[in-house]
């Protein structure tokens, strides 16, 4: 019987080692260790053994069982690993094929910049105000110190809807409305982005374009505050190395008025074709709110002062992205729009 057990073990171990798949291994297990397996069959002969032999033979049988079970387990592990390997190998995909994506649109370049500009001023405590694009003459001109027949009306060629209704030529009427609403309260810090309209149409001027204007009214606001604010803004938009240059100018609604240049974005100030060799690019108009404008909107110019500024978002977009024809911004050619799928200003 001992011989039988040893033979059984030897043959079974050989078979286990030779098994090449899990099914085969299971068959071997059943054949050796199953209820109707060979080991059971051998043990059934235990009764015919002398009693003093039985404990030893019993131990031997258990050792054979343990050995076989261990061999089975380790072989199973091996085969399982091998099988998984084969399965995973078969599941290989071509990772260079395109993924299945929901499709990605794009925020319009002007809106990208609008968001950035808004965020910069929100960070400085400004609110965002809005107003109608078709506006009353009063808010667009009169309340901004541009009475009827003032030569300054020529500075902005205007689309009219009626005698006293027009397409706003700047977003300044929003400032007037905001000042009226604030009823003399300070501080007032706001920007107003939006569409404006002027009768211009060429490579750098569009009859519809976007402006963002800002206004701060408080006690003791100075031109120096304006300068610092704009410097911060310009550096956020165009980079920390930017500089600004203020030049005297004229707007009926500010006094003093300034025009603000930044270092040419094409040549960084060295002088090139873009900046007509000056090294500077005009980017916005600004100034200290005219006392008459303050007065008309319910502020006492003896008590408070303010600054205002306005810039064309289109112009910033053209400079920033190197777009030479403003038409690209309003033609909505998908080949243009899709270029703005990625990134963040």
């Amino acid at each position: 019987m001992e011989q039988m057990l040893n033979n059984l073990k030897e043959e079974a171990l050989k078979a286990i080692a030779a098994a090449s798949e899990l099914g085969e291994l299971e068959n071997i297990r059943l054949a050796c260790l199953g209820k109707k397996g060979q080991l059971t069959a051998v043990l059934r002969q235990m009764g015919s053994m002398p009693p003093q032999e039985r404990p030893r033979l019993g131990q031997l049988a258990n050792a054979v069982r343990d050995a076989l079970e261990e061999a089975l387990a380790s072989r199973r592990e091996e085969l399982e690993a091998r099988e998984q390997e084969a399965r995973l190998a078969a599941e290989r995909v071509d990772v260079t094929l395109p993924g299945r994506k929901p499709g990605r649109g794009a925020v319009h370049p002007i809106m990208r910049l609008r968001r950035q500009i808004e965020d910069i001023f929100l960070g400085m405590g400004y609110t965002i105000e809005e107003g109608p694009e078709i506006e009353a003459d009063y808010y667009n001109f009169v309340a901004l110190n541009i009475p009827k027949h003032h030569p300054a009306r020529d500075m902005q060629d205007t689309f009219y809807v009626g005698a006293d209704v027009l397409l706003r030529t700047h977003t300044s009427p929003v400032q007037v409305r905001a000042m009226e609403k604030a009823r003399g309260k300070v501080p007032l810090k706001m920007i107003c982005p939006g569409k404006v309209y002027r009768k211009d149409d060429d490579a750098t001027h569009s009859p519809m374009f976007f402006q963002v204007e800002g206004l701060v009214i408080d006690r003791g606001i100075s031109l120096a505050d304006l300068k610092g604010t704009l410097l911060h803004f310009v550096r956020e938009i165009f980079g920390p190395g930017q500089r600004i240059r203020l030049r005297p100018s004229f707007f009926p609604f500010t006094e003093p008025s300034v025009e603000v240049d930044i270092l040419c974005t094409a040549c960084a100030g060295a002088g090139c074709r873009v900046c007509k060799a000056s090294g500077w690019l005009e980017i916005l108009g600004a100034g200290m709110v005219h006392p008459r404008v303050l007065e008309m909107s319910g502020y006492d110019p003896g008590q408070v002062s303010g600054f205002a500024f306005g810039l064309g978002i289109d112009r910033v977009a053209m400079l920033k992205y190197g777009i030479h024809n403003i038409r690209h911004l309003y033609q909505n050619d998908l080949r243009v729009l899709k270029q703005f799928q990625g990134g963040l200003e």
């Binding site: 001023f121 929100l122 960070g123 400085m124 405590g125 400004y126 609110t127 300070v186 501080p187 810090k189 701060v216 408080d218 006690r219 003791g220 606001i221 100075s222 031109l223 120096a224 505050d225 300068k227 610092g228 604010t229 410097l231 911060h232 240059r245 203020l246 030049r247 005297p248 006094e255 003093p256 008025s257 300034v258 200290m288 005219h290 006392p291």
Partner: peptide, 29 residues
Amino acid sequence: QDIAEEVGRLHGLDNIPAALPRGVQTVGV
């Protein structure tokens, strides 16, 4: 203010310092 503009203009706008508004803080949201 018109006189202020003349003085500022010929003083040189480049000579005006850069500052930021002081005063009551506001929340921009």
